[in-house]
Amino acid sequence: MIQLVGLHKTFRSGRGFVNALKDVSFVMEKGSTTTVVGKSGSGKSTLLNCIGGLERPDKGSITCFGRNILALSTKALSEFQRQCVGFIFQHGNLLSYLSVFENIAFPLTLNGIAANQRTERVKVLLEKIGLSGAEKAMPHELSGGEIQRVSAARALAHSPRMLLADEPTASLDSETGKNLVDLMFGIVKEQGCTMIISTHDPEICDLADMTFYLKDGEGIAEV
């Protein structure tokens, strides 16, 4: 279970203080899928960042699978992230100096998976995302859709308990976006992973178990 209670996050910018999250609370069951919907600047990315430990909220608590992640030390948080979290960014954010194979294998190596098991796992994932034979390709040689597919494979490679996807289809055409979403939902269901995905796309919301609406940092959950 993932439980968020009274999350507050304020940023200081040139325009003064911006309340990105205001008293956000919701609960997600293990293995469920949730979409976070809202306009640009509504706090979607901040919410996902907070849940994934990339950002620290000013107030509130986040409990993921029985662990209060805000109470974890820096080292323990890193351990939590590398074992339990997979993150898909809006623009893929592949490591540009590593090949497709090395990008997908990266979280496996971080988790101490043996080389032969790594190779096997990467091959399986490449097949699933339809990029078999592209192991040696570098990120700059891939299309936007391919980058997002590799990013999804990387995020799911180590079988995390939680997948966070920040507008993964935003920079893709609708066909490519749909394929990616189908792929993600397929793998997530197969692995029993809890997924939170921020999006503007109502079709993605239809596939999810729950939708969480954010407006100016405040949220309403709808099952």
Partner: peptide, 14 residues
Amino acid sequence: REYGIMKAMGVTSR
């Protein structure tokens, strides 16, 4: 940017 991505994947400060 690369270092930020790595940190998001759980790479420790050390």
